[in-house]
Design a protein around this nucleic acid. Structure first.
Length: 647
RNA sequence: GCGCCCGUAGCUCAGCUGGAUAGAGCGUUUGGCUACGAACCAAAAGGUCGCAUGUUCGAAUCAUGCCGGGCGCACCA
């Protein structure tokens, strides 16, 4: 609601400036430094001072006098050297909130695709993958809240080197047959088995470089798509994808469609893209130098200043296509530029009816129309920004400038480990590493925190707390609450950092349920519900707010500053979502949730709602309680965090 | 060597489309459960915003240069 009034003020000002001074400028608004200055501050007079050659205060006065009445605005005043501070009409504003004035966000046209998770299906997910998935999933929720139709994709590289390596380990190292691998898949934690195996084969390659020929052989078989090695590749990849889906499900993360690399190959997506790239001279055949015999994209295409920047190989001299090439084809498909589509089948249907589709080479199932988006967000680690630049350059070279502009690398920094956590995990550190603020994880070495281990640990920690506080509750229910708290703790922990901050993962910090944490917010969100249910237990009903709390009554009550500030804070959800979507920063919403929780905890402490005797004030307190509870729950939902019924 | 990111309180981080007295959490010290549950609240201490120059009425925020740290720059993904 806050931003509705804010934009109303902005347009009133800009209309006036146009008429009065003939100026067409965008009016910026800010939050005043101190709440006592009002709700909105406009530094517009400073902006105009030079142009109009007048003192800012004089200009500010002219504007205030001229701009006239703005519905919902109570007063405007000049402050400091020429700030214009705007105060809302408290009663009118509260009344708008009370009536639930339609701030229903308008649906926006143009599908947005968000691609996230994208874990190589060859081992268990780790903490870094969780950051990717939680960021991507939360951003999807925010986009939907802002009115965008969203399609969630999780790309599966099921024919790549990493899958091949695990197949090599099973087949050549462990001499396992297909049936033996199937037995392992049926057993517990197949993704953990592969995690160790992947580390083993990686070090084996190092000790015995000759063994790399196994990889080449396996990769070739997988790409050709037949034979035992290929079958095993599919078996492993499909099983690991199931593990990943289950892990993500624990955090309430799901997908619409899983496009797989095997279909990109077999449905000849690349061949189609290759023709376009050649035809439009986006790539050329190199006849000399180190890249002789390859199709390459000139360095100038993706790097404007460096002349000596190396070209990027797209097709190798042996005729196979690189990952970047395949990614260009995939990116073209996302925008509907390829002239080809996958076939699809339903991979699974969840209890709530949500279906996950997966690409396939032939199908008689009718799938929703996937792809053909007008905007694409690729949630990918910042370490891959160079390659993402090449992909976008590919679109541009093909003449798809509009799509290139709408192709966004939603990058984030890695999750490393704090030295203390390394020690806990039994990872040996060099003296040099011990002094560093963080240590990078390595899948190849098998170093890292597995996602499921972390979630288990969080649940265990939460369960202890819940058990000590609610010994009388059924065990099953306590478990459910503990799971919700764990989910809240983890998602909040991963979201509270802005994207370009390296997270030095630390168990102690992640397991903390106090201070700026998910459980703190969940705890605060539980309190309004508790108050309202206590009211019911006393046999009292909620007053009819709409009749008791007239604009006059609200004005009387909201003179009290902390009530007004509280209400104001809780009305900024929409503004926060908008800001987070525009800046691509889910952390803004996480911080907002924490702020709301703080405000309410404060209120809770200061005003015993049910003990209030003055009827009008009591009605206000109850309404604030109700309103806050709803806003807290809604904000948590935006973050994918559940609100436990008790804690 | 080139490119991208980071440097703000003891620690971990917000704030960066320039704007009023630079903010949180943790930790430290102190106080608050006979209240709608203390996973809470209140208070205190704690800052050359890496350094320098510039632009500006005004810089943590923009520009340039330096210093320190991280990550990229494969016919791997």
């Amino acid at each position: 609601m806050f931003h509705v009034l804010e934009s109303r003020i902005q347009s009133a000002f800009s209309d006036y400036l146009k008429v009065r001074y003939g100026l067409d400028i965008t009016v910026v608004t800010e939050q005043p430094k101190q709440s006592s200055f009002g709700e909105i501050a406009l530094p517009i007079a400073f902006q105009l001072a030079r142009e109009l050659k007048k003192a800012p205060r004089v200009i500010a006065q002219e504007i205030i006098d001229g701009v006239g009445e703005i519905p919902g605005v109570g007063a405007m005043e000049i402050a400091g050297n020429g700030y214009i501070n705007v105060r809302y009409d408290r009663g009118a504003y509260a009344r708008m909130l009370l009536e639930g004035a339609s701030h229903a966000t308008a649906a926006r046209a143009g599908k947005v695709i968000v691609e996230h998770t994208n874990i190589n299906p060859n081992k268990a997910a780790h903490i870094g993958h969780l950051r990717n998935a939680v960021l991507g999933d939360t951003f999807c929720r925010l986009l939907r809240a802002a009115g965008y139709p969203v399609e969630v994709q999780n790309y599966i590289d099921n024919t790549g080197v990493q899958v091949a390596d695990v197949v090599v380990a099973f087949h050549f190292l462990e001499k396992k047959s297909l049936d033996e691998v199937k037995a392992l898949i049926a057993g517990p934690r197949f993704d953990y088995v592969c995690w160790d195996l992947y580390a083993r084969i990686s070090s084996y390659y190092k000790d015995d470089p000759e063994s790399k020929k196994w990889r080449a052989e396996t990769l070739h078989a997988i790409e050709a798509g037949h034979g035992e090695l290929s079958d095993m590749g599919h078996l492993v990849a499909d099983a690991i994808v199931e593990c990943h889906l289950a892990t993500m499900r624990r955090l309430d993360i799901t997908y619409d469609v899983l496009p797989r690399e095997s279909e990109i190959l077999h449905l000849k997506f690349w061949a189609q893209a290759f023709e376009q790239l050649k035809e439009r001279k986006a790539i050329y055949f190199e006849t000399e130098g180190k890249n002789k015999g390859c199709w390459v994209m000139p360095g100038a295409a993706f790097n404007d200043d460096a002349e000596q920047e190396d070209s990027k190989v797209i097709v190798r001299s042996n005729g196979t296509v690189t990952y970047v090439g395949k990614d260009i084809a995939y990116q073209m498909w996302k925008f509907g530029l390829l002239g080809k589509d996958f076939f699809y089948r339903i991979l699974k249907t969840y209890a709530d009816g949500h279906q996950i589709w997966v690409s396939t080479t032939a199908s008689d199932q009718t799938a929703p129309p996937f792809g053909s988006a007008s905007q694409v967000f690729n949630v990918i680690d910042s370490r891959q920004s160079y390659l993402q630049d090449v992909v976008v350059a590919g679109l541009r070279q093909l003449g798809y400038n509009e799509q290139a502009d709408k192709s966004i690398h939603f990058s984030y920094e890695m999750v490393a480990l704090s030295p203390r956590t390394c020690v806990e995990l039994g990872i040996e550190l060099s003296e040099e590493d011990k002094k560093r603020p963080y240590v990078e994880v390595s899948g190849r070495k098998g170093l890292g925190v597995k996602a499921d281990d972390l979630i288990d640990k969080l649940i265990e920690t939460a369960l202890k707390e819940v058990e000590s506080r609610h010994p009388e509750s059924p065990a099953e229910e306590r478990r459910e609450v503990a799971e919700q708290i764990a989910r809240g703790a983890l998602r909040y922990f991963l979201l509270k950092f802005t994207r370009n901050t390296v997270i030095a993962f630390d168990f102690q910090e992640a397991l903390s349920f106090t201070g700026e944490s998910g459980p703190y917010v969940q705890y605060a969100a539980m309190r309004p519900r508790k108050i309202l249910s206590k009211l019911g237990e006393r046999g009292e009903a909620l007053p009819d707010f709409a009749t008791v709390l007239t604009a006059e009554a609200l004005n009387r009550q909201l003179i009290q500053e902390d009530f007004w500030q509280l209400l104001l804070a809780a009305s900024k959800t929409g503004a926060t979502v908008e800001k987070a979507v525009n800046s691509g920063e889910p952390a803004h919403v996480a911080r907002y949730a924490f702020q709301l929780a703080q405000e309410f905890s404060n209120f809770y402490q200061a005003h015993p709602v049910l003990h209030e005797e003055d009827a009008e004030k009591r009605a206000l307190l109850l309404w604030l309680t109700k309103f806050f509870g709803d806003q807290l729950d809604a904000t948590l939902a935006l973050l994918g965090i559940p609100s436990p019924r008790y804690m």
